[in-house]
Write a protein that binds this DNA or RNA. Structure first.
Length: 269
DNA sequence: ATGACAACCTGTGGGC
DNA sequence: TGCCCACAGGTTGTCA
């Protein structure tokens, strides 16, 4: 489900409701996520006070006075604020009950998400991540230099979290269209000036999607339960067979690394 | 080091 | 109408 804009939307949605609140209980109904939830988590988190919400890549980092709660939403996860007394539905795997009778509820049908407790500042899953796409260190120059001599198609290159984090399938498709680059082009054969354009497109599409509250395709809702409104602005993703918004050519769909790629064979070279 | 691919899991939509 | 297969927003691990 969530790409970076949806994760950012979730962070912003939950932060005002949980900061300064104390955890009075942790209810784990299903611990079998991508990695099983550690037995330490409940003991460590209960009684802790939330201090702030951060994001690194698609990980949500919730700092407390005792350690940090690290949550990933996988493909189908969501976090909602709701009354602690609201009946738990199917796939509501975890409740973090707060001292004001609200709770932070984790829902994830596919269970590709995860929940970790960090005692220190780091975690192995965060160690080899590339730069944040909206940070100044992510530049055309950076992509150009890291792609030399690489043969991987440019779309898969920008979706590699060791290269840059937070560029998922939707926004990779969109950014390549916006910058006129063919998704199958070898990343090592993309010129510097085109990487400048691509990086600009990635920053623009992600920033716009965040402003719109994320992209709701099926069931995404932010921390307040509201859907995102970016879906109606998509240029290529999900529009295979439909006319290119620029030149009217029928958009093509191919598969790359098991993921669907939609592009315009006239606009993208 | 790089790249290709399977794996994790459930829900849904399209084709037959 | 109902069944089955393919595919869905992500990421890691394995293997050649």
């Amino acid at each position: 489900m969530p790409e970076l804009p949806e994760v950012e939307t979730t962070c912003r949605g939950i932060a005002p409701h949980i900061i300064d609140r104390q955890v009075v209980a942790v209810i784990i109904r299903e611990a079998r996520l991508r990695w099983p939830i550690s037995g330490h988590l409940e003991r460590s988190l209960t009684g802790a006070r939330f201090l702030g919400v951060r994001r690194r890549a698609k990980y949500i980092l919730i700092d407390t006075d005792r350690g940090t709660l690290m949550i990933h939403l996988g493909m189908s996860g969501s976090l909602r604020i709701m009354p602690a007394t609201a009946p738990a539905l199917f796939h509501d795997h975890v409740d973090i009950v707060l001292d004001d009778h609200l709770c932070l509820r984790y829902h994830d049908p596919r269970r590709f998400g995860s929940m970790h407790w960090l005692e220190g500042v780091s975690h192995p899953l965060l160690d080899s991540l590339g730069p944040e796409p909206l940070s100044p260190s992510f530049s055309g120059d950076y992509l150009y230099h890291h792609s030399r001599k690489r043969r991987i198609p440019v779309k898969q290159f920008i979706m590699d979290g060791k290269v840059v984090v937070g560029v998922g399938n939707i926004y990779a498709n969109e950014a390549l269209f916006m910058s006129g680059i063919h998704p199958k082009r070898a990343s090592g054969r993309v010129a510097a000036v085109r990487y400048e354009s691509l990086v600009g497109a990635i920053k623009e599409v992600l920033a716009n999607a965040i402003e719109q509250g994320g992209t709701t395709l099926r069931d995404f809702v932010g921390g307040d339960g509201q859907p995102g409104y970016f879906a109606q602005k998509l240029r290529v993703y999900g529009r295979q067979g439909k006319p290119c918004r620029v030149c009217d050519t029928k958009l093509r769909e191919i598969r790359q690394g098991g993921r669907s790629t939609v592009f315009c064979s006239v606009c993208q070279r």
